[in-house]
Design a protein around this nucleic acid. Structure first.
Length: 601
RNA sequence: GCGCUUGUAGCUCAGCGGAUUAGAGCAUCUGACUACGGAUCAGAGGGUCGGGAGUUCGAAUCUCUCCAGGCGCGCCA
C-alpha cells in the first residue's frame, strides 16, 4: 500500500499549501518542503494513517492547531482524488488528522496484491531508471583453521536475512565471506603441517587433516612452549608472504580443509556465501599505504605508519592513530579493510553503491576509524554508503557469555544439532499424546525445519543491537513470538486448503468483508511492502519478525472466530482469498528471514 | 580515564527522526473444545519508561548530567 500512502501524503501537502500559502512559501524559501508529519496510524481506532503536521504549523502560523487541522481537512474535502481514496479526514485530540481508506479501495488493493507474484513489493528497478545498484553484504567471516562457534551465529543469520531482503527488492547483492585466511597464525599452522603430515604437500588428497580444532590447538601449544618452533614459524610467515610455493601449498590445504567444514554449516542453515578472504586484498595493500602517504594522511609514529583520527582520543588524550603499517613493515586488518573498501567501491573492482558490514558491536570503533580514513582519502563515492550493522553478544540465560557446561565455547554445529534434537523430542512426545502416527522421515524433516527456524527466529526477532539471551526453552516455545507459532499459522492455512478450499491467489470476483477480524487481517496484509522497505533502510530484521508475528496473531483470531469453509458465498471466496494471501505473505516473509515453512507439523 | 552501547511490567523484549489512554510475549489468575489442527482464542491483574534537570503547547523518544550493566581502547581480527 506504499503507492497509496505516497499519494495521500502528496494530497496532504497540497491541501496544506492551499490552506496556508504563506506557510508553503516560507518552507520553499528555506529550501524545505511542507511536513505533514504523515504516517501509519498509531492505533487502529485512528484509521489507516495519521497526520500530525497541524501541531507543528501552529507555531509559525500563530493559530490554534485544531483550527489549522480544520482548514486542512476542508481543503482535502475539495480534492476529488482524495475523496475517491479516503473517507473524510477526522480531527482528533489537539489537532490530529485521522485518515481512513474506503473499504472498496482496500479491497481493490488486496486484489492487486493477490495477483502480484511479488505480493505488492515493488522491485527497486521499477523506482528509478531501471537500474539495480550493487550492494555488498559482508557477513559470517569465520577464521580459517578454527571452528565456527556461537560468535559467528548472529552475523551469519542476520547477514543472510538482510541479503535476502535486499535481493528480493532487486538489488544485485554480493554476499561476501571475508574469512580470516591470512596472518601470522599461519606460520605455526604451516610449520605444524610440514612436521606432522609432510606427505600432504606432495600428493593430492593424501591426508585428511581431520579435526582442525585439535590441529590448531596442537600448533598453538607448541608455539607457546617451544622456542625453536616459534622461530621456524616466524620464518614460515615470511616465506608465505614472499610467495614460497611449498608454503603456499600448505596454506591452500589448510584453507581447503576449513572451507569444507564451513560449507557443512552453511548447507545446514541454507545460506549461500561467496568466499573472498583477506588474502584476496594482498595485492592492494601496498597501494593503500602509499596513497595515504601521498594524500598526506600518513604519519610515522613509533616506527608504525598511522593515520591520526579526528574526534577520537586515546587514553592519554592524544589523537588516536589507526595503524596502517606495522613497525616491522607488515600490514594489519585495518590495511586489509581499507583495501577492501577501495576495491568494493571502485568501478574496476565491485563498483558497489552500498556496503554493509554485519559484525559484533565491539568492532564499532574499528569501523568508525576505518570509515573515517576511507572518507578522508576520498575512497567512498559521494552517492555511495557504507554501514556497520552491529549486533550484541550471545549470552546464556544467566546473562553471561554463552559457554558449555565445561566452560568452553559452544560450537555452532553442536548448538544447531541440539536445537533439532530438542524439537525432535517434543514432536515425538506430542505425536504419542495425540495418538497420531507419523513416519520417521516426517519427524526428521519437521524437527530439522522447526529447530533451525527457532534458532534463526529467536536471533532475528530481537533488536540486534542489544545483547541476546540464548534459550532453547524460549525459542522452541509453541506460544508467543516464536518460530513454531508462526509456522503453525501457515500449517493451519494449509489445513484449510487440504480440506477442500482452493486458496485462490488470482481472485476475480469482488472481495466482500463484513467481519472486523477480516478487516484487521486485510489491513495488515497491505502493510507488507512498507515493512520490507523499512527493513531495507534500517537493516533491522526484528521489524519483519514483529510484523509476521502480529499477522499470525490476526490470522489466528480470524481463524478462531470466523468460519471459512462453511461460510456462504460471497464470504467464503473472500475469506479463502484472505487465507491464501496470508499464507503467501507468511511464507515469503519467513523465507526472507531464511526460514522454511511446512505443510504439516 | 576515554569511547561505543544498553537501562521500559516479575522475566524476555517492541516502541526511540516528539503527539490522541506507554505495547507485546512469557509467567500468574479466570473463561472458551460437536466450525477449517486447542501447538488456538477471549479476558484480568501487573509500569513514577534507571534518577534528576532542560528544550517544547506536548518527551519513553531530543539535549545535558548523574547512576548502573555490557563491550572496546597503538602495532590480533
Amino acid at each position: 500500500m506504499l503507492r497509496i500512502s505516497h499519494t495521500i501524503e502528496q494530497q496532504l501537502i497540497n491541501a496544506i499549501a492551499r490552506a496556508f500559502p504563506d506557510a508553503a512559501e516560507l518552507a520553499q524559501s528555506r529550501g524545505e518542503s511542507l511536513n505533514p508529519a504523515f504516517g501509519a496510524a498509531s492505533k487502529p481506532e485512528f484509521g489507516d494513517f495519521q497526520a500530525n503536521g497541524a501541531l507543528a504549523l501552529s507555531k509559525c502560523l500563530g493559530k490554534p492547531p485544531r483550527q489549522i487541522a480544520v482548514a486542512i481537512a476542508e481543503q482535502l474535502k475539495l480534492d476529488p482524488e482524495f475523496n475517491q481514496i479516503c473517507k473524510p479526514a477526522e480531527i482528533a485530540g489537539p489537532g490530529f488528522l485521522n485518515i481512513t481508506i474506503k473499504p472498496e479501495v482496500l479491497a481493490q488493493e488486496l486484489q492487486i496484491q493477490l495477483a502480484d507474484p511479488r505480493l505488492g513489493v515493488a522491485p527497486v528497478s521499477a523506482e528509478g531508471n531501471g537500474f539495480s545498484p550493487e550492494v555488498i553484504v559482508d557477513f559470517s567471516s569465520p577464521n580459517i583453521a578454527k571452528e565456527m562457534h556461537v560468535g559467528h551465529l548472529r552475523s551469519t543469520i542476520i547477514g543472510d536475512c538482510l541479503a535476502r531482503v535486499l535481493e528480493f527488492r532487486g538489488y544485485q547483492v554480493k554476499r561476501l565471506n571475508h574469512v580470516g585466511d591470512w596472518g601470522t597464525q599461519f606460520g605455526m599452522l604451516i610449520t605444524q603441517l610440514k612436521e606432522l603430515a609432510p606427505e600432504a604437500l606432495d600428493t593430492a588428497d593424501a591426508i585428511d587433516l581431520g579435526d582442525l580444532v585439535a590441529f590448531y590447538r596442537g600448533a598453538k601449544e607448541r608455539f607457546d612452549s617451544d622456542i625453536e618452533f616459534q622461530a621456524i614459524s616466524r620464518e614460515e610467515v615470511v616465506k608465505l608472504q614472499a610467495g614460497d610455493p611449498t608454503s603456499l601449498k600448505a596454506w591452500g590445504l589448510l584453507c581447503e580443509q576449513s572451507r569444507k567444514e564451513f560449507q557443512k554449516i552453511y548447507h545446514t542453515l541454507n545460506i549461500s556465501l561467496q568466499e573472498r578472504g583477506e588474502s584476496f586484498y594482498n595485492p592492494y595493500l601496498q597501494a593503500v599505504v602509499s596513497d595515504l602517504a601521498q594524500a598526506g594522511l600518513l604519519v610515522i609514529d613509533d616506527g608504525a605508519g598511522c593515520v591520526f583520527l579526528e574526534g577520537m582520543l586515546s587514553k592519554e588524550g592524544t589523537p588516536l592513530p589507526l595503524i596502517i603499517q606495522k613497525s616491522d613493515g607488515g600490514f594489519n586488518y585495518a590495511t586489509t579493510d581499507l583495501a577492501a573498501i577501495r576495491y568494493r567501491f571502485d568501478k574496476a573492482g565491485d563498483g558497489a553503491k552500498r556496503i554493509i558490514y554485519v559484525t559484533d558491536a565491539g568492532q564499532a570503533n574499528h569501523f568508525a576509524a576505518v570509515f573515517q580514513v576511507a572518507k578522508r582519502a576520498g575512497w567512498i563515492p559521494p552517492e555511495a554508503s557504507i554501514e556497520h550493522v552491529p549486533f550484541g553478544l550471545v549470552q546464556g540465560v544467566d546473562g553471561k557469555k554463552l559457554k558449555t557446561r565445561s566452560g568452553e565455547t559452544v560450537r555452532l554445529k553442536d548448538l544447531l544439532a541440539e536445537a533439532v534434537e530438542h524439537c525432535s523430542n517434543d514432536l515425538r512426545k506430542r505425536i504419542k499424546e495425540e495418538d497420531r502416527s507419523e513416519s520417521e522421515d516426517f519427524v526428521k524433516q519437521v524437527s530439522t525445519t522447526v529447530g533451525l527456524a527457532a534458532v534463526k527466529y529467536a536471533d532475528l526477532s530481537t533488536n540486534r543491537i542489544t545483547n541476546y539471551q540464548f534459550s532453547f526453552d524460549r525459542m522452541l516455545a509453541l506460544n508467543g513470538n516464536t518460530a513454531p507459532y508462526l509456522l503453525y499459522a501457515v500449517v493451519r492455512i494449509k489445513g484449510i486448503a487440504r480440506k477442500g478450499g482452493i486458496l485462490n491467489t488470482k481472485q476475480t470476483a469482488d472481495l466482500i468483508f463484513d467481519q472486523p477480524q477480516e478487516w484487521i487481517l486485510a489491513r495488515q496484509l497491505l502493510q507488507f511492502d512498507q515493512v520490507i522497505q523499512d527493513v531495507e533502510i534500517e537493516l533491522l530484521p526484528n521489524r519483519l519478525c514483529s510484523y509476521l508475528f502480529e499477522l499470525s496473531q490476526s490470522f489466528n483470531r480470524f481463524y478462531d472466530q470466523v468460519t471459512v469453509l462453511k461460510a456462504e458465498e460471497p464470504a467464503r471466496s473472500s475469506r479463502l482469498a484472505l487465507c491464501g494471501l496470508t499464507a503467501k505473505v507468511l511464507e515469503l516473509g519467513l523465507n526472507l528471514l531464511g526460514i522454511e515453512t511446512l505443510e504439516r507439523m
